[in-house]
Amino acid sequence: METMVETKGLRKTFMRKDSTPIHAVKAVSFSIYRGEIFSLLGPNGAGKTTTISMISGLIEPSEGDAFIGGYSIRQQARQAKQLIGVVPQEIALYPELTARQNLWFFGRMYSLRGKELKMRMDEVIEFMDLEERQHDRIDTFSGGMKRRVNIAAGLLNRPQLIYMDEPTAGVDPQNRRRILDTVFRLRDEYQMTVLYTTHLMEEAEELSDRIGIIDHGEIIALGTQAELTERIGAEDRLVIEVKRPSDEQTLLDALRAHPQASKVEYQVDHLKDIDRRGGSAVTPAEEAVLTVYCQNGRKLLAEVLNIIEQQVEISSIEVRQPDLEAVFLNLTGRALRD
């Protein structure tokens, strides 16, 4: 497969005011193939935006380089940028201008002019379904509409590669669906390569041909979803919410004794009560969560429930199959949403 983006040892170090370094991105190297949707998945602050900012030429890497269509972003920035369309996380538009005036300006920045510029503007306006509001000021638009104009501005130059940095942030479900469908259309109808960043596992799972998981400035896993889950040998999880048992240890021993349960976790939340005088007391919640790790959870469910029901009342049951959340948890020991 032809490589569209290649990063080599990309590193970014910021200096605090007291001269101590912050390593935002640590020697990141990966490739993105032409025509694929590649998601960079990670929690907030993991280094996704810094990585994308270096690849797009917004910030200078401290070390390493990125190549877009073979052009070095450090040495041949102008040629590389010509191939890129950028959709920032922020609504990077002039609120005082109309949608069309915004598109005119960004089109001119891509050296488009005259009939060609008009044609491209009409094209992206139609593509993002903005015809009716194209002459209205951006500050009169809803959040979802603004997001669509934001995307339209990134498509004006018919880029070979489009970066989309959390484009569904703060968007209602209807507009979110529309944006996700747009991403598929960009790949399928326009053969664009999409580099998509998100902290939402569901989006990455739905959209991506391949996924890079980033944490603390490092790519900790990369591949298709199937490759990633297979790689950690992920098991199903039976998540069972129960009334807190009087004898926890007996229940846990009984579950752990089952030959197909590889691991059992028990978690009780604690509640903090604050009285009128400002004093507080921490008490355990009346409910607890049992998580049983096993192969083929659906088959084992009846047996596990039988063990639990003998000792305690069950509130809810959920069978979770391996997902990116599990992958992230397995790799970092933390949930993606933490």
Partner: peptide
């Protein structure tokens, strides 16, 4: 702050 400056700088312009 509204990122229009950054958006311009990632375009083919010095």
């Amino acid at each position: 702050q509204n990122w229009t400056l950054q958006r311009v700088i990632v375009m083919p312009i010095s």
